[in-house]
Design a protein around this nucleic acid. Structure first.
Length: 667
RNA sequence: GCGCUCGUAGCUCAACUGGAUAGAGCAUCGGCCUUCGAAGCCGGGGGUCGCAGGUUCGAGUCCUGCCGAGCGCACCA
């Protein structure tokens, strides 16, 4: 944990700039970085470069003047102006490490944050099994939740369930038209088959069927109408399908240690007339108005004030500057429901759901769901909604709609809330041609599809890798590796370990790419446990844990006993008096976790977290090979090394928790 | 047509809000299991950072133009 030191250094440098140069701009940045290596320093700032022109002095000279004026700082032993112009500082290494291990000294308590934050992620249409594209959303969303909590923010995780959309309607059509299955039949099916897999295939067949004769789309429209208006028996069948598939999704996500606090159902938003409330607010503030002329005559429209978001291909016509919100027949478009939902999230709707317990969370607490039925409502529930900040985790293809949401908030007079709404956007997952071929989805030679750099995943076509299939394959691979290496363990133990490894492999794979990059999914790459992979990180911690296990087994010494004498031992070894700073480098890198989490939350770039964990594990592995502990005879050296390893394993374990990954006892 | 994103080693990707010598994994070549676990470590080869200008003490990073790829732009959801 290094951020408190950053803050202290920044504050002191600012004070010096004010005293010595009378520079007090509040927005003057004092960036704190980590120099390339430990002989140059532990923290550094290029602040002198910014001031060079202003002060008409060389950066080197300015850095030196600041260094001279800084005075003594707690935890810092030396400040140095590098020839390059950087201002570098050196930390009190023994004090730094021992405080973080709780052996000696103390750390400042972190300042708690109080602003409630809602994170919405997953939101899979409840009409088929989850696939790898959905998994990217959930992995990013869940890691965001964990990162926010790590830094002390209270978070509410929601999963939006579109139970009244066309996708569910399509599967209902399949049940009726192809299978002649009613509600009782569907219940029987759910009890005897993989229901979400069954729906996966059925959905693809329905899509194909529509393509055969466009007249059939009328059946979809009628079905959708019946679902929205609660017309039986369609409504009950649709509700059963959605409920069953949602429960399957929850199971799939639970395998990856992903869960939620609240499921918000679109049907409840409809039945509780959230849109009517939102519409009132939008009319009252002039956010929407009735268009009398042109092609949007008779529609309620919202002005699009961002020229980036032109609504139609024809530019320069006035209609392209407005978005239809309510059609001329009086029905609201899709995004209208999202607006109502967003108003509720931001605490601006003045109306609430009823709530019912739906399932049990991973931690044993109830998972709540919204309901519109007072008979099902449970009074004693946590307060939901009305957050100070919102993150909507949803892929980049929805960027336009998310922009409209933000604009709607501004339009009803709440620019601050709009500012605190973040579209966490990420690119989609596609299949490599090799993997698509392996799955039997090779596009026809010479077709447009075949010329593309990748094959697009499509739930509509049933083209994709199902999440559970992927997880099964990864775990099976891990299982065979564990069986080879751990013959003395029981089957159950090996299974547990294989599951931990599988989760690590899948989750690491899903966050290691920048969110702006399309993941071209390749099955062999996802199944790799070598090099930059989740299991590599786990393996490093397992080895570190083993050292302490062996200390206990062979010598009867636990970690506390090993580290207790360090405050009175010579610090030469951690100080690198012999010119070797490898041990200290490992400690300092391990301490950067809070800095990395801060950066990750600021930029929503979780690849940075993944890379950090990997680099840290790499440093440890190198150290591990060079520096023995059990066989080291010099007592001080042995204990300093043990301290470094103790801190490393603590920090990398925490990093793995941030991506929902556990460390197995062996692997 | 307009907008957003991407283009870095043979392949897949990094490069912290413009900073110190552009780094990893895979692949390839060569070493290391009688020392805390080889899912590992050490080393070699491999780069006009798409192209051309510009801003800056400093550009892979910012600006402009061009080339190539992907996505989005409905009274669909």
């Amino acid at each position: 944990m290094i951020l408190p030191l950053h803050e202290q250094l920044k504050a002191r440098v600012r004070a010096v700039l004010a005293e010595r140069y009378e520079i007090t701009d509040p927005d003057l940045n004092v960036p704190v970085e980590t120099p390339p290596n430990r002989t140059m320093g532990d923290l550094g700032t290029p602040v002198a470069f910014d001031l060079a022109r202003r002060l008409r002095k060389a950066p080197r000279v300015i850095a030196q003047e600041i260094a001279d004026a800084l005075g003594p700082l707690p935890g810092i032993t030396k400040v140095e102006a590098a020839p390059s112009g950087y201002l570098n500082v050196f930390l009190d290494r023994p004090a730094f490490l021992l405080a973080r291990l709780g052996v000696a000294g103390s750390l400042p308590a972190p300042t708690p944050r109080s602003d409630k934050t809602i994170v919405e992620h997953t939101a899979i249409n409840p009409n088929k099994a989850a696939h790898i594209g959905h998994l990217r959303n959930s992995a990013l969303g869940d890691t965001l939740v964990r990162a926010l909590r790590f830094r002390g923010s209270p978070v509410e995780v929601q999963n939006y369930i579109d139970d009244t959309g066309v996708q569910v309607a399509d599967v209902v059509v399949g049940f009726r038209e192809f299978e002649k299955i009613d509600l009782a039949g569907a219940k029987h099916l759910a009890a005897t088959t993989r229901f979400d897999y069954y729906c996966w295939d059925l959905y693809a067949r329905v899509t194909e069927w529509y393509d055969g004769d466009k007249e059939r789309l009328k059946i979809r429209q009628a079905t959708l109408h019946d679902i929205e208006h609660g017309v039986e028996p369609t409504a009950s069948l649709a509700a059963f399908i959605a409920d069953t598939v949602v429960r399957a999704h929850l199971k799939t996500m639970a395998r990856l240690n992903i869960d939620y606090q609240l499921l918000t159902w679109e049907g409840d938003i409809l039945r509780l007339k959230f849109w009517a409330r939102a519409f009132d607010a939008m009319q009252a503030t002039g956010a929407v108005y009735l268009q009398n002329d042109g092609k949007h005559a008779g529609c309620w429209v919202m002005k699009i004030d961002d020229p980036d978001a032109a609504a139609t291909p024809e530019d320069d016509d006035p209609e392209s500057r407005e978005k239809v919100i309510v059609r001329s027949n009086g029905t609201a478009v899709y995004v209208a429901k999202d607006m109502a939902y967003q108003f509720w999230k931001s605490g601006l709707l003045g109306h609430d759901f009823y709530y019912r317990p739906f399932a049990t969370r991973l931690n044993g607490e109830p998972l709540w769901a919204t309901t519109s039925d007072p008979a099902l409502a449970v009074k004693d529930h946590p307060a939901f909604g009305a957050a100070a900040a919102t993150y909507n985790v949803i892929d980049v293809r929805q960027a336009y709609l998310q922009k409209l949401l933000k604009q709607a908030l501004t339009a009803i007079g709440h620019p601050a809330e709009a500012e605190r709404l973040t579209h966490f956007s990420y690119e989609m997952v596609a299949l490599s041609h090799a993997t698509a071929k392996e799955l039997g989805f090779a596009p026809a030679e010479g077709s447009d599809e075949a010329k593309k750099p990748f094959v697009e995943v499509s739930g509509r076509k049933g083209l994709g890798v199902k999440a559970d299939d992927l997880i099964d394959r990864v775990i099976a691979k891990a299982q065979s590796e564990v069986e080879r290496r751990q013959p003395d363990l029981s089957d159950a133990e090996r299974r547990r370990i294989a599951e931990d490894i599988g989760v690590a492999a899948v989750r690491y794979f899903l966050i290691k790419y920048s969110r702006t990059k399309v993941i071209v999914f390749d099955i062999d790459e996802a199944l790799s446990f070598e090099g930059e992979s989740g299991p590599y990180l786990q393996y490093a911690v397992v080895r570190a844990n083993n050292i302490f296990q062996k200390l206990q087994d062979r010598l009867g010494i636990d970690q506390a006993a090993m580290l207790a004498p360090l405050p009175t031992m010579p610090p030469d070894f951690i100080n690198g008096s012999d010119g070797d700073h490898e041990l200290w480098a490992l400690v300092l890198e391990a301490a950067r976790l809070d800095d990395v989490v801060e950066q990750v939350v600021r930029t929503l770039e979780f690849a940075v977290l993944a890379k950090y964990g990997f680099a840290l594990a790499q440093m440890f592995n190198a150290f591990y090979h060079r520096a023995q502990i059990l066989n080291e005879e010099r007592d001080d050296v042995r204990r300093w090394r043990a301290a470094a390893v103790a801190y490393f394993r603590m920090q990398l374990t925490r990093m793995l928790e941030l991506m929902g990954v556990a460390v197995p006892p062996r692997m």
